[in-house]
Simulated scan of single mutants.
Amino acid sequence: MNEHIHDDGADPVLQAQLRALPAERLPPARVWEQIAAQLPAAQSAASAPLTARRQRRRWPLRIGLGLAAGLAVLLVVPTAPPPVVQPSPLQHQADAIAQEYQQAIATLPTDTLAPDWQPTLHELDRSAASIRAAIAENPRSRYLLGQLQRTYALRLELTQQALIAAGLPS
């Protein structure tokens, strides 16, 4: 039973054979080529979860840096003043019509009008303001200028009727 027990220095032939083996054994070149071809696929498969985690951690950093860069651009780049918009000829006409209306209303004693006329007169004033705003948005609309003239004319006519109904001179 003791025949399988080995003594470290008991077999000098075996020891000599082991010492005769080369210290390194290099595989043939084709084996290295196969190993090299498989390395990128194996590395990407092994590092995919790690890469995904790195990318997940980096996106807030990228967004933050992008926002900071955008803010820096806004603070550094001088902004040009808005262009000065010249009023159109129609807007000048609308201003002239409004001024004539204001002068005509100023000559009338509108503070003594009956209260039942006030809602209608205020509605016409709101309509005129809306038309003026529409002219500012579309300064080439002759139709709007005509509507403004008709609204002011109607407002003056109703004011005069209210004064006549109140027994005041118009």
Score class of each variant (00 low, 15 high):
residue 70 G to H: 01
residue 14 L to E: 02
residue 108 L to R: 06
residue 99 Q to V: 14
residue 92 H to T: 15
residue 147 Q to V: 08
residue 52 A to Y: 04
residue 42 A to M: 07
residue 70 G to I: 03
residue 80 A to G: 04
residue 169 P to Q: 06
residue 6 H to V: 15
residue 147 Q to G: 06
residue 117 W to Q: 03
residue 86 Q to S: 08
residue 58 R to G: 01
residue 131 I to Q: 10
residue 74 L to M: 09
residue 159 T to H: 03
residue 76 V to I: 15
residue 170 S to P: 02
residue 2 N to L: 15
residue 157 E to C: 05
residue 51 T to S: 11
residue 11 D to F: 08
residue 143 Y to T: 15
residue 116 D to T: 11
residue 169 P to L: 05
residue 163 L to F: 06
residue 78 P to R: 01
residue 120 T to H: 12
residue 139 P to I: 13
residue 170 S to A: 15
residue 63 I to E: 11
residue 129 A to G: 05
residue 48 A to G: 08
residue 127 S to L: 14
residue 100 E to M: 08
residue 116 D to F: 04
residue 13 V to M: 04
residue 41 A to C: 05
residue 35 I to L: 12
residue 124 L to K: 06
residue 133 A to Q: 02
residue 110 T to Y: 02
residue 130 S to M: 03
residue 105 I to L: 02
residue 92 H to F: 09
residue 126 R to E: 11
residue 70 G to M: 00
residue 110 T to S: 09
residue 56 R to L: 10
residue 96 A to V: 12
residue 122 H to F: 06
residue 42 A to T: 13
residue 95 D to V: 03
residue 111 D to C: 07
residue 48 A to F: 00
residue 93 Q to D: 14
residue 32 W to S: 14
residue 106 A to Q: 12
residue 43 Q to K: 06
residue 33 E to M: 04
residue 33 E to Y: 00
residue 67 L to D: 08
residue 8 D to I: 14
residue 134 A to C: 02
residue 50 L to N: 02
residue 26 L to F: 10
residue 72 A to M: 09
residue 167 G to A: 07
residue 19 R to S: 13
residue 73 V to F: 02
residue 106 A to P: 05
residue 31 V to H: 12
residue 118 Q to I: 10
residue 89 P to C: 15
residue 29 A to G: 01
residue 112 T to I: 15
residue 19 R to A: 14
residue 104 A to L: 09
residue 17 Q to E: 14
residue 39 L to E: 12
residue 110 T to W: 05
residue 28 P to G: 10
residue 153 A to C: 09
residue 45 A to S: 13
residue 91 Q to H: 09
residue 5 I to V: 15
residue 13 V to E: 07
residue 79 T to D: 01
residue 51 T to G: 01
residue 118 Q to W: 01
residue 134 A to V: 15
residue 37 A to K: 10
residue 145 L to K: 00
residue 17 Q to G: 11
residue 137 E to C: 07
residue 23 A to N: 04
residue 1 M to F: 04
residue 53 R to W: 04
residue 137 E to V: 12
residue 82 P to V: 11
residue 144 L to C: 06
residue 111 D to L: 06
residue 143 Y to M: 10
residue 38 Q to V: 13
residue 120 T to A: 03
residue 3 E to Y: 09
residue 20 A to N: 13
